[in-house]
Design a protein around this nucleic acid. Structure first.
Lengths: 194, 194
DNA sequence: ATTCTAAACTAATAGTATTAGTTTGTCAAT
DNA sequence: ATTGACAAACTAATACTATTAGTTTAGAAT
């Protein structure tokens, strides 16, 4: 037999199915229906539902890495950080369902996942290198930066931040700028202590 | 019949069952087993599994509101904000399973949920009032403050921020202090424009 | 004592993921 | 051309999940 099914086709179909809908779980049954195949047939290509979810997370991570990478190309320091944050948010806005799977990547054991997770953060470390921060400072501020991005995005997606008295776009910019200012201040301080 | 079952007992049992385990879903079957009753029997008291989850979210929200309220009693401005942030994080650390249900509160329609969600934020608005911010500034900075807390907590819970080169406790403090500094700067700026 | 009602029950439905075992279609070697 | 082997589909069953309908039961109120 063989209906042209493969691991790649399955993962990409699953990714397409959940891409636009935030927090949507991939269902093996529904996925099989979409592929015109019986659910059990998928197990010739994948190990488990969790396996598909992991692959979709990796697929999504690569897409995010590509888009943030393009956004910061040729930029430095503040400009690069703000561009990264905006591209990050844009990715979630365009692919809310996929973003969900990236965040769950770290739960799994697969080393590729940890690598992908590291690759998402890597550009931030590179940008921070230009500030002349110590190693531990870099770790701290990278965490702070990601917390701001992710915390804002998740809460907005859960239906918060809808008060019309304040534009959420502006809130996000204020939050990111706040972290950027904090990074600059930390860099100047450690410079002064030399 | 009647085994002393009630909505309150069900919700509190469910809350206890998931309290310590992050991201754990409440299962009607497991809950019934714990209560020594058949799954269908629960439906004499609750409308659906989602109903229980909502009630657990409310239960958790009240607990969080109480604990953050106590933490900031008698404090002002920076001190109050830092105390709030620490109590918020402590709550999640002690009740990771419950925190999960608070965040999902906003998804539901129930007006009590929106009220509880508002009550969590209310103390932040009160603290910000002392800074003399404009109304829209208050909205912005309240969002920024919550994003930092929630974003940090969620990512850590998903297994990030484990690099031993930087203490995560310290990262959290740096992030919160960064937002506090941003608030003070924004307040001074709007003061200067008078 | 009888009646009423709340709260339990059983049994069934429709979903979920998953496994074991079977069939089939295609491609390669004889 | 026929056979054999393998990959990839299948059917059927298991064990979960939530939920509904309809039935029984126990205790409180008359």
């Amino acid at each position: 037999m063989g209906k042209g099914l493969s691991r790649e086709v399955i993962v990409e179909t699953a990714a397409q199915m959940v891409r636009e809908t935030p927090f949507q779980q991939i269902s093996v049954n529904e996925l099989a229906r979409t592929l015109g195949v019986k659910p059990a047939s998928l197990y010739n290509h994948i190990a488990s539902a969790e396996d598909i979810r992991t692959e979709v997370g990796l697929y999504a991570a690569r897409k995010l890495i590509r888009e943030t990478g393009e956004a910061i190309a040729g930029k430095k320091r503040q400009d690069a950080l703000m561009a990264f944050a905006k591209a990050y948010r844009t990715f979630e806005r365009d692919n809310p369902g996929l973003y969900f799977y990236i965040i769950h990547l770290h739960d799994a054991e697969d080393s590729r996942l940890r690598e992908a997770a590291a690759a998402i953060i890597h550009p931030i470390y590179e940008i921070l290198a230009d500030y002349g921060l110590t190693q531990s400072q870099s770790h701290h501020w990278q965490r702070v930066f990601r917390s701001m991005m992710h915390g804002f995005i998740v809460q907005q997606r859960h239906g918060y931040f809808t008060n019309p008295q304040a534009d959420s776009e502006q809130s996000y910019e204020i939050g990111i700028q706040c972290v950027i200012d904090g990074i600059r201040a930390a860099a100047q301080e450690s410079e002064g202590n030399k």
